[in-house]
């Protein structure tokens, strides 16, 4: 029997007086790879922040691994990795790649203590898993957009999490590196049995790689198997997609003004 790792029940949340998302309910099972799609301002990031425990729902109930994320212990929190847009982080900051990854261990290490040899080893292992071990001594700002995101993935998985949350992680990454980035996610998911939930505008990637899709535009319009959600005409309309995805058995063709076959 499948195990629910994320559950939203009638959740409303927002900033200030208004709600960004209203009365949303959906669940994610362990091992799922979920793409969260929808227009800007529709509430994708708010949903992810509630899962990460940094945004409080105004109404309803959020459970991650059966626990209210706001009541996570430090150990429970370390079972979640979080990666956001690289463009939101000032990578001119004077810090080396290995230290960026080590930051993922800081809260577990606690104040007044320095990272141990084991912490350093875990950071190196995470860099190895993302193919960035040869850059451990480089300044983060010296890397390309795709390489930076690999480093942030390494930080997200340094504690061997069960759940990886990604908020539009390929913004600012060129098309070639985006493809390599998605391949890396698939590999990590396969090898380390991760559950992944990712907000994205890349419908092509969603149709190719994820097994479930959540369409968020102030509420959850639809949540389910990728094909089922993307075939739904109303999903495209509600989520502001000008893309039609045509499924041919297991093959998919994306139609968004220009041909795209795979």
């Amino acid at each position: 029997m499948s195990e629910e790792i994320i559950t939203f029940k009638n959740v409303s949340a927002g900033y200030g007086a208004g709600d960004v998302v209203e009365n949303i309910s959906f669940s994610v099972e362990k091992g799922d790879y979920v793409g969260v799609i929808g227009p800007n301002g529709g509430g994708k990031s708010t949903v992810l922040k509630m899962i990460a425990g940094v945004h409080k729902p105004r109404l309803g109930e959020v459970r991650v691994m059966g626990i209210d994320p706001e009541k996570f212990t430090q150990k429970e929190r370390s079972l979640i990795g979080y990666v956001r847009q690289e463009t939101f982080i000032d990578t001119s900051f004077p810090v080396k790649v290995k230290d960026v990854v080590l930051m993922g261990r800081y809260a577990l290490i606690g104040p007044g203590r320095r990272p141990s040899d084991q912490d350093e080893q875990m950071a190196m292992d995470a860099l190895k898993r993302t193919g960035m071990e040869n850059f451990s001594g480089s300044h983060i700002g010296a890397l390309s957009g795709g390489q930076k995101q690999r480093v942030f993935i390494a930080r997200g998985i340094v504690n061997n999490p069960e759940l990886l949350i990604l908020d539009e992680p390929t913004t600012g990454v060129d098309a070639k590196n985006q493809h390599a980035f998605y391949e890396l996610l698939l590999e990590l998911k396969r090898n380390y049995h991760l559950t992944i939930i990712m907000a994205t505008h890349d419908v092509s990637m969603v149709s190719d790689q994820v097994n479930k899709v959540t369409c968020v535009n102030h509420g959850v319009h639809m949540h389910g198997e990728t094909e089922e959600v993307l075939k739904d005409e109303k999903t495209c309309e509600v989520c502001g997609l000008d893309t039609e995805v045509i499924f041919h058995g297991k093959r998919k063709t994306r139609v968004d003004g220009g041909p795209h076959n795979d």
């Binding site: 990460a52 425990g53 940094v54 996570f72 430090q74 929190r77 370390s78 979640i80 979080y82 956001r84 939101f88 982080i89 000032d90 900051f93 810090v95 960026v100 930051m103 993922g104 800081y106 809260a107 577990l108 930080r155």
Partner: peptide, 13 residues
């Protein structure tokens, strides 16, 4: 961590 990436630091605990 706070100076580098406040949101990342917050999510990490």
């Amino acid at each position: 961590y706070f100076a580098f990436d406040e949101e990342g630091a917050r999510v990490s605990g």
